[in-house]
Design a protein around this nucleic acid. Structure first.
Length: 195
DNA sequence: CGCCGGATTTAA
DNA sequence: TAAATCCGGCGA
């Protein structure tokens, strides 16, 4: 089910990633918030200017990690989806700590676990200790970083994607941000509505 | 909880 | 020059 969903339309693939697990060594995160990004036709996507050295991984097969550096200090984790060549990807925007809390706290520079500990795309990558070395990493292979299926959320929230003021109004309005309605590890909840 | 400014590197 | 952000500080 989850393997097939990664191949379908990116908005559907994004929803299917909610509730799945990101595993790296002893650290396990449960995905709670995501955003779908399409190919060149999506003016909010990194693929909008065609293939570049940075976004090359987006044109590859589904199930690989696309990592990019943002705002001069944060790494962002995406899961490449869709048919190969469609250049679609899903940004992992939020997660809950399931295991490896000590390691997560150390990487995040935090002393206590709060619901917001891994709520935010920069926080997710930091909690997993990811950087450019994981770009193009196969998330379905054992070792390194692994994506594992998990129970889907009972109820979903949806709303416009964040931080894309440069996109067309139509693409800004597209409700391609999704979250687990029962999780507190979600940013800007007030901008989301039941799906 | 929301708004604001500063941090800091890279891509196009 | 702006960017798919985070954090701390401040006010409501």
């Amino acid at each position: 089910m989850s393997a097939a969903a990664l191949q379908g339309p990116v908005a559907r693939a994004a929803q299917a990633l909610l509730g799945q697990f990101l595993v790296r060594d002893e650290v396990i995160l449960r995905i709670t918030e995501v955003e779908a990004y399409g190919g060149p036709e999506d003016s909010a996507s990194h693929a909008r200017h065609g293939r570049t050295p940075r976004n090359a991984v987006m044109w590859g097969p589904a199930g690989r990690a696309y990592l990019y550096f943002c705002y001069g200090m944060h790494w962002m984790l995406n899961v490449v989806t869709g048919p190969e060549g469609s250049a679609a990807a899903v940004l992992i925007r939020g997660a809950e700590a399931v295991a490896g809390l000590e390691t997560i706290l150390a990487r995040r520079g935090a002393t206590r676990a709060t619901p917001q500990l891994c709520a935010g795309p920069g926080k997710v990558a930091q909690a997993l200790g990811l950087d450019r070395a994981f770009n193009d990493h196969d998330l379905r292979a054992e070792g390194g970083l692994i994506l594992r299926p998990g129970p889907p959320p009972t109820c979903l929230l949806a709303g416009p994607r964040l931080g894309i003021a440069f996109a067309t109004l139509e693409d800004q309005a597209r409700p391609w941000r999704f979250a687990d309605a029962d999780s507190r590890a979600v940013t800007r909840r007030t901008l989301l509505q039941p799906l």
